[in-house]
Amino acid sequence: MRYLKEVFAARELLGNLVAREVKGKYSRTIFGQLWSLVNPLALMLIYTFVFGLIFRANPDPGDPSGLNVFALWLLCGLLPWIFFSSVVTVGAGSLVANAGLIQKVYFTRIVLPLSVVGSTAYNWLFEMFVLLVALLIAGAFVLPWIPLLLVVMIMLTVFSAGIALMLAIANVYFRDTQWFLSIALQIGMYLTPIIYPISLVEQASKDVGGLAGTPITLIDLYRLNPMDHFVTVFRQVLYDNRWPDGIEMLICLGWAVGAAVLGTIIFRRNEKNLAEAL
């Protein structure tokens, strides 16, 4: 509890660090904040071309929204994934990148990874806003779902922050973490139903049946991936425009709380050693 108070007391510092990241990131570029859209748009074009047109991954139309646009369907899952993956990547490196500061000044260390979460969330908000506009233009009745969308976005933010805290510490002791992470995230992206619908996995799982004679199926293992649940909920809210399954929401909440609690505990335990370990 006392620790939370300490973190709360550092909120101004956190705000300033977030502002530093946000202002510094696109300074001296002509397009400024628009650059934040370029990466998702480029990926969208590639995936839509490869998986939408060539492989013909054919997700069901939004129910009840009636949307049937692969690019939009893709973005509803892709934007949350990009957010998660950049929070985790940059967050994991945040302590090492600020080694000089940690060794010279005392402050609540947790603000360093959290400021990465904040500045990435800022960019994500911007991207999601543009996606909302695009969905509206395409005819989705998405406005009433915005409050629920914000709740889900907060859950994903908390989840990503928890993971980033753990990895930031791990990276101080094992610099392999960041390299390992980039591979893990690439694999993770293909193990999450972002560019193909989960119905394909369900089908494949049925064909294979129980693995090695057990009742465990492929889909059971597949669904252990927390990001699968987040992406599912995001699609249900944004693309289908309906209440997400209660159980899915609960699983997301569980992952978010679990990651945040564990991340904070691990971070707190190691915080005092950072100046020496770096």
């Binding site: 101004e12 510092l13 300033n16 660090l17 502002a19 530093r20 202002k23 500061l101 000044v105 402050f107």
Partner: peptide, 9 residues
């Protein structure tokens, strides 16, 4: 901006 940033650090 740095005065505010550094001051809060």
């Amino acid at each position: 901006e740095n005065i505010f940033l550094n001051g809060s650090i």
